[in-house]
Nucleic acid binder design. Structure first.
Lengths: 241, 241
DNA sequence: CCCCATTACGTACGGCGTACGTAACTAAGA
DNA sequence: TCTTAGTTACGTACGCCGTACGTAATGGGG
């Protein structure tokens, strides 16, 4: 082990004790660190989250942060778990499809509050404490569904995948515009113009016909919430009786 | 416009001419640049792809690359389009579900060949030339399906979302292990141990029961290809008659 | 033929993740 | 109670990164 007590062995951050027995009491907590990182990401985008920024934000020296978070990757894991704590789980109603749709709506709202979340969501973070609470609650909602447990987990994964992809699409233009020196409208404008010119080439007749009805962009004037509900409901309809 | 001819205005890289009329003939092409970036990402991971590395790889000065690619983000866009060219489109059979499943299998194989692809896939890249070819072909396969065109695009998006999420899950442990100084087995070991200890706490009874059958990990001994087919087929089953 | 847009690219700046060394601190063991 | 070993805090430094900018070379259009 190095002088600073920073291990280079495989570990999961959640199994690390927050407080070791021996030395001075830690001046910070994982919660406050995660909260600061989330604050920065919400305000300025995920690319503004750096070890230096977060450390400064909680009033610590940069390298002190490494006593709490072994790598930046683990900081991301903390962030995802922190916002996963925002779910409000209510008792299952008995209608598992309605319950899962309500959960999916919560996920969508969560991602709109934290637009960096879809990008950061990774299957390897899927076993953080709050992720486990989420899975447990999902299984509780799925109690009335008579399929093997393994398939229930598949169902939850499928729903979450659909939700993540859907909301990523909703947020994509805005997120990209925030990271670049021009506005979302300008971004949308050049993309639409490019697409229009390609479609006018006649190489993609079916696509041209398909987008001629609506705008080609993910949500020009549509009620996104309604489309979202419909997509998730359709997926849920593929399971069970 | 700056001295170097590098615009800071909104634009889509695909609408930029590869060759301007005036000066010396460009020594490189977008294709070769994208190919080099893909080569690096395949061999050493997406985080090894830097403007310096790619420029050096094609035998150019670092800043020369900016004559071809205005920002690193656009390099990613080139990469995604480049590998999207690996699809082999065959004539629709008339069975749209089979055709779309075959396409989904190709996507899965593509992502296994280029494990960085799921991470990089972004809805804003969805209109690159090869993405348009893909969409056009998908619509061709969906000709027998009698639903509005807009819904067909929704269907394609839903399938791709499911595929991306699924394969990201397949690759997650391996990709994370490659980026960290330990092996996939070690990574899997510590994650499994952590999960086991949490489940043993009794806080998640349903989850504990659900994972007691199989291992908790995405694919311990399962036939992933079969599970994949089943997931996609189920989704396809939710559409049409 | 010559002008000037365009290509090529070296230098430099501010930021990043993080290895490492050192000093201050405190709980556990003698 | 005193020692000591493990822990926290954090400054410094290294090697990367993306990219702004300035300058020299190049070659097609008027």
């Amino acid at each position: 082990m190095t002088a600073g007590g920073r291990p280079a062995e495989p570990e999961v951050i959640w199994s690390r004790p927050q407080r070791a027995g021996r030395g001075p009491r830690p001046a910070h907590s994982r919660e406050s660190i995660a909260a600061e990182a989330v604050r920065i990401a919400d305000a300025e985008g995920i690319e503004a989250v750096s070890m230096r920024r977060v450390a400064a934000g909680i009033g610590a020296g940069t390298m002190s942060l490494y006593n709490y978070v072994p790598r930046k990757e683990e900081l991301y894991e903390l962030m995802v778990d922190a916002v996963s704590g925002e779910y409000e789980f209510t008792a299952p109603t008995g209608d598992w499809r309605a319950d899962l749709l309500a959960l999916a709506r919560q996920t969508r709202a969560l991602m709109h509050r934290h637009p960096w979340l879809p990008r950061l969501l990774s299957p390897v973070y899927g076993f953080s404490p709050n992720a486990l609470r989420y899975l447990e609650h999902s299984l509780e909602c799925l109690a009335p569904l008579d399929v093997p447990d393994a398939e229930k987990l598949e169902l939850v994964a499928a729903v979450n995948g659909t939700v993540a992809t859907y909301v990523a699409g909703e947020l994509a233009l805005a997120e990209r515009a925030r990271a670049l020196p021009w506005s979302e409208d300008e971004e949308q404008g050049v993309r639409t113009a490019w697409l229009g010119s390609r479609l006018a080439s006649g190489e993609y007749p079916r696509l041209a016909a398909a987008v001629s009805g609506t705008g080609p962009v993910p949500g020009a004037g549509l009620d996104m919430a309604a489309v979202f509900d419909r997509s998730v409901s359709r997926l849920l309809g593929a399971w069970g009786a």
